[in-house]
Nucleic acid binder design. Structure first.
Lengths: 336, 336
DNA sequence: TAATATTGTGTAACCGGTTACATATAAATT
DNA sequence: AATTTATATGTAACCGGTTACACAATATTA
């Protein structure tokens, strides 16, 4: 492979000049530039990213740290990130943290040693200490689904609270008379906000009682188990808002096992808008958040920070939309 | 951040000695080693991966190139790869090729410039030319789901042919009298082998006719459309073997729309064993291939090649297993 | 016209490691 | 005791870029 010195020799100039042509960051005579360009083409020269990285420039690499790529919520986000990165000539290192603080720390350490140009976090366990470390090392940082508590990173999130209200409103609109909620781990701000949205929507209803809120851990099994508990305690509920789609799928399974019909007996709505919701029977209504766009935006914001060299911490809140499907397809008149 | 020269100074030795302690590849006196180790600890020194990479050593990075991480078939494989990599202290660069040769070439070029230590391909479009390029650059390569045609890489694959036979046999066992097959893109060896397995299983059956084999493009929509065509032409079929689970999900949807009951009227079985099959109603029977293990094995084989420095091209064929679920839950006596 | 600013290019140090080569001492062999 | 071999360490070149600094030529300003 040709090096910058080969190019310099062929063009009859110094390596510094070649470097200047490549980076367009200093004066270069038009004619000289032409000579260099010609030499580069002739040798099919491509600058070496590793050497460049070592010399203090960008390494052309960003990292995406998420809990688990096999959780169907993340692949689309990852795809959004990767598409943008690819367009910028960057590659993406994928890390599965399992929401495990220690594993996360290990990754951060490793990535720092690799001089990654920036990181995107989709994880609820990112510690302030880690954030501080990255700030010190001037590694730009973008975080998904967090509160904006630090002055050193931008946050991308969906309007969870509003989405939750939207979901409950929809259930009420189709005539639900008693609505339960399955919520996720309260360390996650998304889970918390969705629960809050539910609570604020229903707390003044005559039928409201705290036991209508059950934990489902954002997982399918959790949803399944929770819904069975729920129906035992409250056999008269006719609507369930699940804090995420995975739990909704589990709930649907559970209801089916109990012989309860969806949406006729109980209407069901999830949150996230992952593709799973289209393959259940009945298809699941959901509050969709723009997952691909979240990944895309995260990457765009990150590159903005990388290129400008300044971190302008900012909060991006993305709109969510109600997607009505069969699991809430009930005429208001069905249940007088 | 401390450098190797800082360590050398503190320990009162040369950088070469420090490097030797680090790499354990030459003589170092026990006492000297102790001094160096102490200095390393004191300074919390960690060798810089980028510098190491430039100096001709490993970069601690491998690449995983697959068509699309948002295709539910791949996340689990990716997870398998990443887990092994992480255990070896490596990071994984994720690339989405969209099965687009040109994009793939671009990635390979980029990854070569980054000195990745090896690549794993899960893509049907990898060209011989690219393979040759990587062989020349001595970049170890492991490929998923391909025929073993080259002497320069190992292949990990599932027993597709046998799996297809297993699927058809199962449908026959539960009493199916006329079985159709939806197949995937024939450029993919997996699709081809599964089709072959079906054909060989049924070609001597009295009801066999080529029009029982329809293309479904390995996608949900394709499966849905194909099944509608199919039922129009052959309203009497009572079993469908789908070349992958995604098509089976589509087929299930299609059958449901046509008012055909699964498994009572038509039994349905897929291939792959992705998690989607557990959330449909009815749950889908499938021929499961060990996706996580395939990713894991791919990475292990790759690291073996990286560490030994020799490519020992080998074919790994993994077993598949029949998973019986509701979509084929029919007593042989149900249909006399 | 002299002084100053702008443009253009090369030399060499630097990023942070690895390693070929040289050299020295201790241990083993003849 | 002399020679060979194994052990131990340092010096400096190298990987392939970037860039501070020096210097020259040209353009602009006073």
């Amino acid at each position: 492979m040709a090096t910058i010195r080969d190019v310099a020799k062929l063009a009859g100039v110094s390596v510094a000049t070649v470097s200047r042509v490549l980076n367009k960051n200093s004066y270069v005579n038009k004619d000289t530039e032409q000579k260099v360009v010609k030499a580069i083409e002739q040798l099919q020269y491509e600058p070496n990213t590793v050497a460049r990285g070592l010399a203090g420039k960008e390494t052309g690499t960003i990292a995406l740290i998420l809990p688990d790529i096999s959780n169907p919520f993340f692949p689309v986000i990852a795809r959004g990130v990767e598409d943008v990165a690819q367009r910028h000539g960057y590659t993406v290192i994928l890390c599965n943290s399992d929401d495990h603080g220690q594993k996360e720390k290990g990754y951060i350490e490793m990535l720092r040693k690799k001089y990654v140009d920036g990181m995107i976090f989709a994880s609820s366990t990112l510690s302030e200490e880690d954030v501080e470390q990255m700030r010190k090392n001037k590694i730009p940082l973008v975080v998904l689904d967090r509160a904006l508590t630090s002055q050193s990173y931008s946050v991308i999130r969906a309007r969870n609270y509003e989405g939750a209200k939207l979901a409950v409103r929809h259930l009420l609109d189709i005539g639900c008379k008693k609505i339960a909620h399955l919520y996720g781990p309260q360390e996650m701000i998304t889970a918390k906000e969705r629960l809050q949205g539910y609570e604020d929507s229903v707390k003044h209803a005559p039928w409201y009682t705290p036991s209508l809120m059950l934990p489902g851990h954002f997982h399918m099994d959790g949803g399944l188990r929770a819904v069975k508990d729920l129906m035992e305690k409250h056999s008269d509920i006719d609507g369930i808002f699940c804090g995420n789609d995975l739990m909704a799928v589990g709930a649907l399974k559970g209801l089916h096992q109990l012989g309860i019909r969806v949406p006729d007996d109980v209407a069901l709505i999830g949150f996230d808008g992952i593709s799973l919701t289209e393959i259940t029977q009945p298809e699941l209504s959901t509050i969709a958040q723009p997952n691909y766009d979240m990944g895309k935006l995260a990457a765009e914001v990150l590159f903005e920070a990388i290129q400008s060299g300044v971190v302008q911490p900012k909060l991006y809140e993305l709109e969510v939309t109600l997607i009505e499907r069969d699991s809430t397809a009930r005429k208001p008149t069905d249940r007088p």
